[in-house]
Write a protein that binds this DNA or RNA. Structure first.
Ligand SMILES: NC(=O)c1ccc[n+]([C@@H]2O[C@H](COP(=O)([O-])OP(=O)(O)OC[C@H]3O[C@@H](n4cnc5c(N)ncnc54)[C@H](O)[C@@H]3O)[C@@H](O)[C@H]2O)c1
Ligand SMILES: NC(=O)c1ccc[n+]([C@@H]2O[C@H](COP(=O)([O-])OP(=O)(O)OC[C@H]3O[C@@H](n4cnc5c(N)ncnc54)[C@H](O)[C@@H]3O)[C@@H](O)[C@H]2O)c1
Lengths: 225, 225
DNA sequence: ATCCCTTTGTGAACCAATGCACAAAGTCGC
DNA sequence: GCGACTTTGTGCATTGGTTCACAAAGGGAT
């Protein structure tokens, strides 16, 4: 069952992958400020993690540091970028151009790092044809053609919850295997498709849980039902 | 040690807390469809987790199921809501009313579950005074007064990255201990303050990593350094 | 070249979370 | 009231992740 003939055991732990972008951001900041080398201690500080964790994370990519000195900033930026796949361009389509979709389309921050918004799609005839951030909003009927035609490999879902699964199924049918979902639904997808979700409401509920606890726990106002 | 009215296991694992909102959402959907009881199997299915995990999660809150039958939907909704602190109202302030802040302010989805947007704050005189989603945008100078005056306990940061740490320091100084940060910076906060971050760019990078891997890994175009 | 100092890379211990598997507890039909 | 059946709640093994702590590696000074 295990594929034994993997050339190199390229198993980078998921937790590490999730932190690499953090390191990358810190490194970009340092590069801009002209810092040439950085110790694990300093980089860890900038990324908000502890230094042992940072070193272990980096060790999964290879031995890119120099003992007694630290890491060369530019070189590490390159290595992490390469590992994350940021040395190539990714075409992203945003489906659902409402409040949130618009904000995302107007957001410059992710275009900067290898991600390019290649299409905006919506079902509402009122919205279709609008120009947002220099892009024309196209009709959802064009979904398959647009994805195939522009080499879209990542789809951002910003439709209402009720529409998300249907759109999801359609993009998967055309071969998309990476989806970022903002709609508050659990998408069901076949194996091999990655879905990441961003859910404001869940985050707030987690904060509320801890907040309540700090304030004395649910015991204060709780009668014995 | 076993007493039916002893759900007082104060230590709910963080991973469990993060899933409770998911269960809650699934349960709300079921309640709306008139489903009275649900098995761990079905609820787990709806929430996208496996049933053993769901049962273990729920067992941390207490013994609220009936063997051979399942869980009573309404009752479980209440228990989870109470545990998460959703039986009370939380006043939320959104700081930074740009593209994203506006989308958040207009978003109805989280007002529904105990969260109420109590204030919108911005530094730009152009924006201050606007009415968004029925709320007046106030000047950031009012920050302290607004937080104290309206009992704000959760702050959402949607300012540019450069301003986030400063605003963060200020809200903490007035006693806020729960922050949801959308700015792409690592906030530094004292112990006892919870920060959760939502970072679109990180999510995309994680997707890119896996996408690249599916496509053949970074080994394809890699020369020997 | 040699010594000292700094910092990496990693084995090992620890801790958290997951998933299996099943006894215990309950329901329902008769 | 009883036995068959269903489903919970949990002990246990396993996996994944974090942290500690230190030997090995390299740089710079002399
Ligand atoms: N706005 C927020 O701050 C926020 C926060 C968290 C989550 N969300 C979620 O993000 C999603 C979008 O939120 P929003 O505030 O932008 O909602 P919105 O109603 O403003 O926008 C939704 C857009 O999707 C379009 N749409 C509907 N069905 C479609 C379909 N089948 N194909 C393509 N487009 C379709 C609509 O025409 C509309 O333009 C929702 O699921 C919401 O729950 C939003
Ligand atoms: N728009 C997105 O889709 C998106 C996605 C991911 C992350 N973000 C992040 O969210 C943040 C906001 O993004 P945006 O697109 O809304 O930016 P934006 O520039 O449209 O809005 C930022 C707002 O913050 C206000 N502001 C600036 N300094 C302030 C201060 N000191 N106090 C109070 N308000 C202040 C500005 O006046 C402006 O209205 C940024 O950090 C961005 O990186 C945005």
């Amino acid at each position: 069952m295990k594929s034994p003939s993997q050339p190199r055991d390229r198993g980078i732990p998921e937790a590490t992958v999730a932190r690499l972008p953090l390191y990358l951001r810190a490194l970009h900041g340092m590069a801009e400020r002209g810092i040439a080398t950085v110790s694990s201690e300093d980089l860890a500080g900038a990324a908000g993690v502890n230094s042992a964790k940072l070193r272990k994370d980096l060790s999964h990519l290879g031995s890119y540091g120099t003992r007694g000195v630290g890491y060369e900033v530019e070189y590490l930026v390159y290595q992490i970028s390469r590992e994350l796949g940021l040395t190539q361009d990714w075409a992203v389509a945003i489906v659902g151009v409402g409040n949130l979709g618009r904000a995302l389309a107007n957001y410059g921050g992710f275009v900067s790092r290898g991600f390019r918004v290649a299409a905006l799609l919506d079902a509402d005839p009122e919205v279709v044809g609008d120009t947002i951030a220099g892009l024309n909003v196209e009709h959802i009927d064009e979904l398959e053609a647009v994805i195939a035609g522009r080499g879209v490999s990542i789809v951002v879902l910003a439709t209402p919850a009720a529409a998300a699964q249907k759109v999801c199924d359609r993009v998967i049918a055309v071969g998309v295997t990476s989806i970022l979902n903002f709609a508050p639904v659990v998408l069901s997808v076949p194996d091999g498709v990655d879905v990441r979700k961003v859910d404001l409401s869940i985050e707030l509920q987690i904060l509320a849980f801890h907040e309540q606890r700090k304030a004395g726990g649910p015991l204060m106002a709780v009668d014995g039902q």
